[in-house]
Design a binder for these strands. Structure first.
Length: 436
DNA sequence: ACAGCATGCGGCC
DNA sequence: TGGCCGCCCTGCTG
């Protein structure tokens, strides 16, 4: 069996995609399930004790909807002092951490020699049929789990640490395929503190919340328009920010089950939404209208909201992502450039040539940042992965491998593991590079 | 406003 | 084994 095959035939797809119950339209229950924070992440090391302590305290010392966590018995990670975290929980003593947690400190950063990245045959798998539109790692440092969404509405999980089976048994190979949607998946949001809850959005107009343990996808939101992008602020997991229809933008309060803000930010579909890690009030959007914009969420007028900054391209813009430090922005456009925007007020824009014409059958390229501000990662039409230096304003190296049988077009850099990179293709394969 | 074009990949014969 | 068909979709041009 070739390394990129897991025996995922169409028959298999048909047999598995119906096994998941998808609940009918109803308001989202407030209950978020037990606090299953597998990884509290701080500094550069995961501390499992913190997880256990928070789980136990959260059930005992809740005060109304708030509980205070005393974490004296936890050894501080590196230079961080873990005390006085405030979280919110519901009547069942469960919920998400929020409030005083400074999420900008979460996630790992570091420089990396991309030449040390390798693509091992074991880290290649076809885990969905058809074109992958979204690929994400679960935000967890001791479980290597990839989640993808495709153009048919499938969501598929791949546990890279599962034993490789020769008989094509997908579940034994760590691959779990669902079909909660009926069109292209536009967003997958894994919850940092509750890995079993995953939001998915789709062109079909639905946002669902998957409960991994119960194998259900509850309806959170529905609309007649397509949902083209979905993200959430790192400091507020109760609200969903998404692009709806042609230029529409909504903020949805999950607990209240209602929209808290509706704006028209662009003249065409919003392809990406991102938040600045230094100041989560600053949001970046990219649009098919040819622009990427920076917004201040505290001052978005309901009637003609004014952008803090507009980055103009000559063609559709497919992504606008902040660098890990939050001081730069990378944009990707059909005009064959990757934009690198920097400066104290994002006033310096450099357009770096890059062939981004993916055509109709390949998902558009979206340049992502590596694990620090010095590298931008993007696929190329020659079945390679280009590493662009914004400082040098050019491609500084290209990852290539004979194991790559198709163009990798969507990527995710592992949030906690420097050097672990996932790429996804229009043929349903996922490639995972690791440091050799 | 709307018809048409171009693009890569997996599967099929 | 090679070539060609279907994909049912996006940005853009004529």
């Amino acid at each position: 069996m070739p390394p990129d095959s897991t025996g995922l035939t169409n028959d298999f797809v048909e047999s598995v995609k119906t096994t998941v119950t998808v609940s009918p339209a109803k308001p989202l229950p407030i209950v978020l399930g037990p606090l299953s924070m597998r990884d509290a992440y701080c500094g550069e090391k995961t501390d499992r004790n913190l997880v256990q302590t928070i789980s136990s305290i959260s059930k005992k010392s809740q005060m109304g909807n708030l509980f205070k966590l005393e974490v004296d018995d936890i050894k501080p990670c590196k230079d961080e002092t873990l005390s006085g975290f405030v979280g919110s929980c519901d009547e069942m003593g469960s919920g998400f951490l929020d409030g005083d947690v400074d999420n900008s400190k979460f996630g790992v950063r570091g420089s990396l020699h991309f030449g040390s990245l390798t693509l091992k045959p074991d880290n290649i798998a076809r885990i969905v049929p058809g074109r992958i539109t979204v690929v994400r790692f679960l935000p967890c440092s001791d479980l290597r789990m990839v989640v993808v969404g495709n153009k048919f509405g499938n969501i598929s999980f791949w546990n890279l640490d599962s034993k490789k089976e020769e008989d094509g048994d997908a579940a034994a190979a760590g691959i779990f395929l669902y079909r909660p949607h009926s069109g292209p998946i536009s967003g997958i949001l894994a919850q940092q503190y509750s890995l079993s809850k995953i939001f998915t959005s789709c062109y079909d107009g639905f946002i669902r919340l998957m409960d991994v343990e119960k194998n259900v996808f509850d309806l959170v939101y529905s609309t007649d328009d397509a949902i083209f992008s979905l993200f959430q602020r790192p400091d507020n997991v109760q609200s969903l920010y998404f692009g709806e229809g042609y230029g529409g933008f909504k903020i949805w309060d999950v607990r209240a089950g209602k929209s808290s803000s509706e704006r028209v930010l662009h003249e065409h579909r919003i392809n990406s939404i991102d938040f600045n890690s230094q100041n989560p009030n600053i949001m970046a959007t990219s649009s098919t209208d040819g622009s990427a914009c920076l917004w201040d969420l505290r001052s978005m007028a309901a009637d003609k909201p004014k952008a803090l900054k507009i980055v103009n391209h000559k063609r559709a813009v497919h992504s606008a992502y902040f660098s890990p430090s939050g001081s730069s922005l990378a944009t990707t456009s059909f005009d064959n450039t990757v934009g690198a925007v920097s400066g104290a007020n994002f006033e310096d824009t450099t357009m770096i040539f890059h062939d981004n014409r993916t055509g109709r059958w390949i998902s558009s390229f979206r340049a992502i940042w590596g694990w620090d501000d010095s590298n931008i990662i993007i696929g190329n039409m020659k079945r390679g992965v280009d590493v662009i230096s914004p400082a040098l304003r050019s491609t500084i190296m290209t990852l290539q491998s004979p194991h790559m049988s198709a163009i990798p077009c969507r990527f995710h850099a592992h949030p906690y593991e420097v050097g672990m990179l996932a790429g996804a293709t229009s043929g349903g394969q996922v490639y995972v590079w690791t440091r050799s």
